[in-house]
Computed example of a mutant assay.
Amino acid sequence: MPFKIIASQCTSSSACEPLCPNVAMSVKAGNFVIESKKCTECIVYFDEPQCVALCRVENTNVIDTSVPRYQAPA
């Protein structure tokens, strides 16, 4: 499942955006968002999702359970 950002908790530090290997993060209407179709949970690239690892506010980047989990290529 891809991640999503809880907008009310995001401080917009932008620390996470440049390290997203899939360029899934952007700013819309002044808030950072994660495009679920591009988010792979950093599978293959890092041991843990970079948006979670770099966020200064705990539980701001959370799993979006409304979208199916990413399947890495075989």
Rank of each mutant, 00 (worst) to 15 (best):
A15I: 12
Y70N: 03
Q9G: 02
N61K: 14
A53S: 14
P73N: 13
V62F: 06
P73M: 09
V57L: 03
C16A: 05
C39P: 03
N22H: 01
P21E: 10
Q71W: 01
I6Q: 10
P68K: 01
A74I: 09
R56W: 01
V27F: 10
P49K: 10
T60C: 08
P2T: 06
I34E: 03
F46R: 13
P68H: 03
I34P: 01
A7N: 13
A15N: 15
S13K: 11
T40W: 00
C42R: 01
D47P: 08
I63M: 13
Y70I: 00
V33A: 08
L19D: 09
I34Y: 08
P21R: 12
T60H: 05
C42H: 06
A72M: 08
F3H: 15
V52E: 11
A72V: 06
N59R: 12
K38F: 01
N31M: 11
F32H: 14
F3E: 05
A72I: 03
I34D: 02
E58M: 08
Q50H: 08
V57I: 14
T60Y: 01
A72Y: 06
M25C: 07
I63K: 15
P49N: 12
C39Q: 04
I5R: 09
F32C: 09
A7K: 15
E48L: 04
V27R: 05
T11E: 14
N31P: 00
T40Q: 08
L19G: 00
S13R: 09
C16T: 05
F3N: 13
T11P: 04
P2R: 09
T11R: 12
Q71M: 10
S13W: 10
A53I: 04
P2K: 11
M1H: 07
A24E: 01
A29T: 09
K38G: 00
N22R: 11
D64V: 11
S12M: 14
V52Y: 13
S14A: 13
C42M: 06
